[in-house]
Write a protein that binds this DNA or RNA. Structure first.
Lengths: 155, 155
DNA sequence: ACGAACCGTTGAGAATGTCAATTATTCAGG
DNA sequence: CCTGAATAATTGACATTCTCAACGGTTCGT
């Protein structure tokens, strides 16, 4: 049996048939790293990163999230949420509103400018997102979203 | 139509039907964050983190990766690979071998102790990994791995 | 033999993650 | 009503990680 004949080709991608490459957590990490890098370059012209984009997205939604809810949802420390919102608020993209139900809490809402910027940023993200997902059928895309939801939100 | 009746339940998880929650990149990020946290706590007793575990895994394999190959494969800066290997080498888990084909390059191989530790760490990772994936059929598990591979390695 | 490109390494500075302490507010129980 | 425990946001300190530029040693094309 000829040894090491299959994937020697260029010298790159040689590690792709290691045991690690079959690990789901590793695939998750690498797929995420790629998506994150793509999103960040797409968002850079708008002065956003993946984090601030996520916060803006939730602010632009009608959900009126609390900072603590943002922290849990985005897997961030509350102090990071403070810094993130500070940055967006200084640019007049979001506002902290006092929560009428709990005066300790702030509720985050997007300004008109914030919603406008989010719409543009969302288009930019979608444009590059399709680059990586173009070879995937809508059916598979939906399947992947479903399976990832199981991992992301284990009830 | 009754407003906001569906997912108000506990107050937690209230953001789950925002537009962001439907975004594939976000699901990827959150699923990865969860898997990473689980892996890190499982690896902590063995003195490893996800990063060092990955490096050790590739060293324990028969692939004899170059540091540059490690950097590209793990989406890391070459300088980070240096620090990672330094840590593992000081614990006599891996060794840098001169690449006979290219004297500039180092090839990474695991020591006997390194392979033994990796085996134990792998068991620990698998044990907690199943916690999140127990509700998934082997069929779906394979499907997910296949779809993630498309994103992780876009040829 | 020469210069360009490449591998590993080092170091610096920015960005991010983690954690404890503080203030203001809510909530449960006496 | 009052008191103490718990919670929301904030601040600050510290560790870890990311990003980048520079450098010596090596390979490769010409």
């Amino acid at each position: 049996m000829a040894p090491a004949e299959r994937t020697r080709s260029t010298g790159r991608d040689r590690l792709r048939d290691s045991v690690l490459a079959g690990d789901l957590s590793f695939l998750l990490a690498r797929a995420n790293a790629r998506a994150l890098a793509a999103a960040n370059t797409a968002l850079a012209p708008h002065g956003l990163k993946a984090r601030s984009y996520s916060v803006l997205a939730l602010a632009a939604d009608e959900v009126r999230p609390t900072q603590r809810e943002l922290a849990e949802f985005l897997h961030l420390d509350p102090s990071q949420v403070v810094a993130l919102i500070d940055g967006l608020e200084q640019r007049h993209l979001v506002e902290r509103h006092a929560d009428p139900a709990d005066r300790r809490a702030n509720v985050l809402v997007a300004t008109e400018a914030g919603r406008a910027l989010f719409a543009r940023a969302q288009d930019a993200v979608r444009a590059v997102g399709l680059d990586s997902l173009a070879s995937m059928t809508p059916r598979d895309h939906e399947r992947l979203a479903h399976l990832l939801r199981l991992l992301a939100f284990p009830d």
